[in-house]
Amino acid sequence: MRGHEALRAAEVTVLDKPMMSRWLAPALACLAVSVLAGCTSEKGQGAGSSSAPGRDGTVALLLKENKTTRWEAFDRPYFTEKWKSLCPGCKLIYSNAEQDSAKQQAQAEAALTNGAKVLVITPVDSEAAVAIVARAKAQKVPVIAYDALIMNADIDYFVSFQNEKVGELQGQALLKKLTADGTADKGKVVWINGSPTDNNARQFKKGAHTALDGKVSVGREYDTPDWSPDKAQQEMEQAITALGKDNIVGVYAANDGTAGGAIAAMKSAGFATLPPVTGQDAELAAIQRIISGEQYMTVYKAIKPEAEAAAELAYALLKGERPSVPDVVNNGQKDVPARLLTSIAVTRDNIMDTVVKDGFYKLSDICAAQYASACAAAHLQ
C-alpha cells in the first residue's frame, strides 16, 4: 500500500512543529544557485541540507486498541510529552489499530511511507506483527516492541513489565484472600484470561498458574478474544450456568476490563456477596470497584516511566545510537535487549500509597459521587 491509499487506510495523526528558519533559508539559497546546485527545500534532502540526526526526524507510535483506558489516557500522552521534550523539531506519527491486526499493518505501512525512521509498536497480534517488523527492517527502520513482545521477529528493543510476575501477583493476591476467607478449598475459581493472540496474556496466564496450580480448583477457564469486557461477561455467565453461583469462590480476571465484565455477570445473576476478583491496569473504574468492595485487587503498572523509556530509546535509535539496557528477553528468534519494569498489587489497603501517591489519580476523582461514602468507610483521605 503506497501514497494516498496508505494514508487513507491508516488514519494517521502527525504532530510536528516546523520552524520558519528550517525551510526559508535553504529555499532562498536554492533559488540563488538553482542552476548550479539543483538543491531542494525539503528537510533532510539535497545538497546543503542542515539536517542532523537527533535534531529532526520521524518516529511512529502504533498502539493496539482503545477499549482499555490506559492506551489513550496514559500511554499516548506520556510518550508524546516525552518525545516532544527530547526532540522538539521531530515528528510523531500516531495510530491506534482498535484491536484490528490488518488495520495495524496498514498503519505501519503508511508510517513507513511517510518517513518514519523508528517504529514503536504495541502489537494487536504478537505473531502477525512479524510482517510489520520485516517491512521495517527492509527499509532499515528499527523497531521497539512496546508493552507486548513481538514473537519470532528481529526487533531491536522491548519495553514492558515483568509480565509473568504480574500474573504471579494476581494469583498470590487471590490465594491470600481465599485463604483468609477460608474458601480456598470450598469451591471453584473461574479463570478469565486475556486475548489468545497477545503474548502478554500468555505470560500473565503462566504466572497466575504458577501461583495457583495445586492450591485451588479451577471450575472453568477461558481465553477472552480482544480482551473484550462484553465477551468476559458472556464467559462468566456460562461459568455461572455450569457451576452454580454458590460454588464459585473466586475469579481470576486478567485485567480490569475482563474483571468488570465478570462482575457485571455476577451482579446480574444475583450473587448475594461477590467473590474476590483480580484485575490489572489500575483503571479508575477498577479502583472505585475496589473501594466499594466489588473487586478485590488490581495490578498497578507505572505507565509513565514505561512510555518515557520507550521514547528515550526511540530517540537514541533516531540518532544512530544503541544504548545498553538492563534486561534481555528471548522472543523465539533472538535475545532482545529489554527494559522491564516492576508492578505492584493494589488492594483497598494501599491505594493511597500507590496510585494516589504517584499522582496517577486524584483522591477527589476516585471518591467522586456515589463512591464518597465508600471512601469515607475505607478511611481514605
Rank of each mutant, 00 (worst) to 15 (best):
D154K: 14
E164A: 11
Q107L: 02
K137A: 02
D185E: 15
V120A: 10
Y146F: 15
K117R: 15
G115Q: 07
P142R: 08
A131D: 14
Q172E: 15
A134K: 15
T183G: 02
L119A: 04
A116D: 09
I155L: 01
V118D: 05
G182Y: 08
K137Q: 11
K140C: 00
V133F: 10
P123I: 03
L175E: 10
Q99C: 01
D181P: 04
A138D: 13
D154P: 10
A131E: 14
S95V: 05
P123L: 03
G182F: 06
A136L: 02
D154G: 02
N163V: 13
G167I: 09
L92S: 10
L174N: 11
S126L: 08
L169V: 10
V120F: 11
R135T: 14
I121F: 11
Q104R: 04
G115I: 13
E98T: 10
Y157E: 03
A148E: 13
M151T: 11
I155D: 03
L86M: 08
V120K: 06
S126K: 06
Y94D: 02
D156H: 06
Q139I: 01
S126F: 12
A145P: 10
K137S: 04
V141A: 04
V124L: 04
A128D: 06
S126E: 03
Q170N: 11
T122C: 14
T179E: 15
K137D: 05
A134P: 00
A110N: 07
V141P: 10
A138P: 00
A180I: 03
L86E: 13
A173F: 05
V118C: 06
E98L: 12
K117V: 00
K176W: 01
E168N: 07
P123K: 04
N96S: 12
Y146I: 01
N96E: 06
A108D: 08
S101A: 15
I132S: 02
A111G: 03
L178H: 09
P123W: 05
A128T: 08
C87T: 09
G182C: 09
A110W: 10
M151Y: 03
A184D: 14
K103A: 11
A136C: 01
K117P: 00
G115T: 13
L174A: 08
P88S: 06
K165M: 11
Q170K: 12
A128I: 01
L119Q: 03
Q172N: 15
K165I: 07
L86K: 11
A136R: 01
A138Y: 00
I132G: 02
V143H: 08
V133K: 06
E127T: 14
I121V: 15
